[in-house]
Design a protein around this nucleic acid. Structure first.
Length: 528
DNA sequence: CACTGAGTTGACATA
DNA sequence: TTATGTCAACTCAGT
């Protein structure tokens, strides 16, 4: 006789054969996939009933925080996940609300005994998960989490670097070299793995469905075509397609890819990584297979290098307090950014009068993805290059509009581009005119996203205000009327800004370059 | 402590 | 066409 229900009597009578058959919630947050999902596999162990759950948390998916494109990506990802779960005789349960309020109710309603989830390093997530774990334990629910969003255990990287996050990429490389290769990904669960779990009951059918965008209160009338559909299946399809191009993979050098090609010059796997539709470790090991036995590019510019950049910023985001802010962020240079609502709105709404900048911001709004170097160009323009507006403002816009709006990567890259943290050669300024010309002399990219300029000759397409009146008339676009005049004079303002940056650096506390043990105060936070 | 080399992805002039 | 040096000059991390 093998008891299948938990009771102290059973345990006392049959200690050897006792099996605790759990009712388990696997809580999906990021990690919207079945492959390489160790927490999900942990959920299946000794489980008789499984509730794969996603909570639409108003804090994370508020419309000011998540734009419609990113919400669409999320909904597609959830639909795909549900579809995959149904092939395993399961399904996805979706609820709305604050996890700390929603979960205790479900624990009771479903008689839950175990909760599993993937570890998440974001400050909001960590505090949320701490609260939820406390609430779960109050209801005597076993809680188990696994690390699978990043290649490594981020805390181990910091530990290995004496309690501080590496501030340079090479330092991070040395650390992860010492830690060895990332773990191999584990396969997705199979029907066999699910054989002891009761198929989901039809009684739940009308409840817990995936809401449509309309049901979330969004106006979808002006929504553009879905170029990058969300979901694990699409992620794996996309990964396969790129991994087949072995020559391209092996010669990949990020700085040599184009920010303004008409179709993406990089993989666009980032949104899938952000939501965890694709495992970083799966990506890493697929690349390792392609690299095997042939010559290939290396970090920092290679595709492996890109995954290590992700790890770099994740590590910084865990080790540096107030990572998404300037104030209270001890690694960040304190800069006297201007408050200029007009400039900020012009940048955000693609009406700076610099076609390269405005085209990029248009692509961002329409498609939710722009090339990494395009992000450099507009980020430099908003901050230290031209408009002298805080990187935090740009961060908010990107977070909302990017499909791959990732908390750690977004904050880290904005600090990098504004020469606030990590990158310090502030005298290297991107030109809103010259930079794009290197890879798109004719301005085809500009014409695609700003059709009003499509008749401008290449000579003037990057600086339409320089075109003689007759040329503007022939192009059917008068600068100042049909397309904005440039809001600033780059040659003048960028030189002024370099000097302002120099002054901000001069005000940096002198102790910030000293070793953590030497001076008290400055680096204490790294150890906490 | 001073010093040095390196730093994913600048622009521009020159060879 | 592509490579190199200059411009002005930063920090980090290792020696």
């Amino acid at each position: 006789i093998v008891p299948t229900v938990s009771s102290p009597a059973c345990f006392a009578l049959h200690p050897q054969v006792f099996i605790m058959a759990h009712v388990c919630i696997h809580w999906f947050r990021k990690g919207l996939r079945l492959h390489d999902n160790p927490a999900l596999m942990a959920a299946l162990r000794d489980c008789k009933e499984l509730y794969p759950l996603f909570i639409l948390d108003p804090y994370l998916y508020d419309q000011n925080r998540a734009g419609i494109n990113r919400l669409r990506f999320l909904i597609s990802s959830l639909q795909d996940l549900d579809c995959s779960l149904r092939k395993l005789n399961s399904r996805l349960f979706v609820v709305r609300g604050k996890p700390e309020e929603v979960l205790p109710k479900l624990f009771t309603k479903w008689n839950v005994t175990k909760l599993t989830y993937e570890y998440d390093t974001e400050p909001y997530s960590r505090s949320r998960d701490k609260n939820v774990t406390m609430l779960a334990e109050e209801q005597r629910i076993q809680v188990s989490y696994k690390i699978s969003h990043t290649l490594y255990d981020i805390d181990r990287i910091i530990e290995e670097n004496n309690g501080k996050p590496p501030l340079t990429y090479n330092r991070l490389r040395d650390i992860v070299k010492a830690l060895g290769s990332p773990k191999k990904p584990i396969p997705a669960p199979t029907v066999e793995d699910m054989k002891n779990i009761a198929p989901f009951s039809e009684k739940h059918k009308p409840e817990y469905g995936i809401p449509s965008l309309e049901e979330l209160g969004l106006d979808t009338s002006s929504l553009a075509e879905e170029i990058f559909p969300g979901g694990e299946q699409e992620a794996l399809r996309r990964l396969d397609a790129y991994m087949q191009r072995t020559g391209w993979v092996c010669s990949f050098e990020k700085p040599n890819t184009s920010p303004n090609s008409l179709s993406p010059s990089t993989t666009v796997l980032s949104p899938y990584m952000t939501f965890g539709c694709l495992s970083a470790r799966t990506f890493w090991w697929r690349l390792a297979e392609v690299y095997q036995g042939v010559s290939h590019s290396d970090p920092p510019v290679s595709l492996h290098g890109q995954l290590l950049w992700r790890e770099f910023f994740y590590t910084a985001s865990v080790g540096i307090p107030n990572f998404n802010k300037m104030t209270g962020n001890p690694a960040c240079t304190q800069v006297d950014w201007d408050e200029n609502q007009e400039y900020l709105a012009a940048w955000r709404e693609a009406r700076t009068g610099f076609p390269f900048i405005d085209a990029i911001m248009t692509q961002l709004r329409q498609e939710g993805w722009i090339h990494h170097l395009a992000r450099h160009a507009v980020a430099c323009f908003l901050t230290r290059g031209d408009l002298w507006i805080s990187w935090e403002e740009g961060q908010k816009v990107f977070e909302k509009l990017l499909l791959d709006g990732d908390w750690a990567l977004n904050a880290g890259n904005w600090q990098w581009l504004s020469a606030s943290t990590f990158f310090h050669q502030f005298f290297r300024v991107y030109s809103p005119v010259a930079f794009g010309k290197k890879t798109d002399k004719n301005g085809d990219y500009i014409k695609k996203y700003l059709p009003i300029l499509k008749k401008f000759p290449p000579q003037y397409i990057y600086e339409p205000w320089k075109a003689p009146r007759s040329v503007q008339q022939a192009a059917g676009c008068i600068v100042g009327k049909d397309y904005p005049k440039s809001i600033i004079e780059h040659e003048v303002i960028s030189k002024k800004n370099i000097q302002r940056m120099k002054q901000a650096y001069a005000r940096r506390p002198s102790g910030s370059t000293e070793s953590p043990t030497k001076k008290q105060g400055n680096f204490v936070y790294f150890i906490c």
